[in-house]
């Protein structure tokens, strides 16, 4: 392909985009708004999953020790815990400390503790697991194993809470995935259809180009580039609106996170490809390839 051809292809794409400003803007707005639904969905999903992860990370396993345990036994338990699979951190909380915390937690009602003659709380180890291991099956196994150790009174990991939470999260992700798939498919449909209509609306020009001896590549490339450009502009519109929504959201919800810059770039590239592909498939029919 020579220089003239390259220049032609680029000038054609820009010219076509410019000359049909009105219909192009409408196409881009339609595509941008449908993409906005997708990115809003992604942002909401991202933030909810962040909250789920954060909650999961907060989860601790409590290993309560028998009363009056010798210090060396207690330390042996700590070492054994640290050497166990998946344990990241082990913090010792003495019964005194535990009571102090409890008193603090009670606040104004701390008076009720005055009735106690002695501290009923045990010494405990507060164990932090690797986040990916915070699952009821793993933790159940681990708890029953640790409970068998000498000097361990009881192991608690919030089984019921965890199981309920897991069901809820699983349910959320399944519903989320279904909604996501539906939104994703409709976005693909809207974009490819919008681009297709653009190609159809220019069928006359395509016929003329065939008539004067343009090769298929000459006809196709500017359309594909235009489809890609429309995809990019629509993606930028969607991301721009999403930023506004995000900024508005942070006024009311703290700790909101935005999409990863890499994901934004990937999204724009994806939209460009979608536009190009929509244009390409629509052209195939006209060019009888």
């Amino acid at each position: 392909m020579n220089v003239n051809a390259m220049r032609y292809l680029i000038s054609e794409s820009v010219l076509m985009l410019g000359r049909r400003k009105g219909s192009n803007i409408i196409s881009i707005v339609i595509m941008g708004l449908s993409l906005l639904i997708l990115v809003v969905f992604l942002l909401v999903t991202l933030n909810i999953s962040r909250i789920i992860e954060a909650t999961r990370e907060e989860h601790r396993v409590y290993v309560y020790l028998e009363d009056g345990l010798a210090q060396n036994v207690s330390q042996a338990i700590q070492l054994r815990l640290l050497g166990s699979e998946g344990i990241e951190e082990v913090i010792f909380i003495s019964k005194e400390e535990a009571l102090a915390r409890f008193r603090e937690a009670l606040g104004e009602n701390r008076d009720i503790l005055e009735a106690l003659e002695e501290n009923p709380l045990p010494d405990e180890y507060r164990v932090k697991l690797r986040p990916e291991l915070i699952r009821s099956d793993f933790m159940g196994r681990m708890a029953s194993e640790i409970e068998g150790w000498d000097g361990v009174e009881e192991v608690r990991y919030g089984r019921r809470w965890l199981e309920r939470g897991e069901t809820l999260v699983r349910g959320f992700y399944i519903v989320d995935l279904c909604i996501g798939a539906i939104i994703f498919l409709s976005v693909i449909f809207v974009i490819s259809n919008t681009v297709r209509l653009m190609v159809i609306s220019r069928r006359k020009a395509i016929d003329v180009m065939k008539l004067v001896g343009a090769t298929n590549a000459y006809i196709q490339v500017p359309f594909i580039m235009e489809g890609a450009l429309q995809g990019i502009f629509a993606a930028l519109l969607a991301v721009g609106l999403l930023v506004l929504i995000y900024l508005f959201g942070t006024r009311y919800l703290s700790g909101l996170v935005f999409l990863d810059p890499g994901a934004v770039v990937g999204f724009i590239v994806f939209c460009a490809l979608l536009g190009a592909l929509g244009s390409f498939t629509a052209m195939r029919r006209f060019l009888k390839m």
Binding site: N4, A5, R7, Y8, K204, A205, M209, V212, G213
Partner: peptide
């Protein structure tokens, strides 16, 4: 006639040459 409406008279005629790779 089969002209392209969104192109000028000049561009319509030039199109036939452009597609052959002729110089500007």
């Amino acid at each position: 006639f089969r002209l392209i409406d969104e192109r000028t008279v000049f561009e319509n005629v030039a199109l036939a040459m452009k597609v052959t790779g002729a110089g500007m």
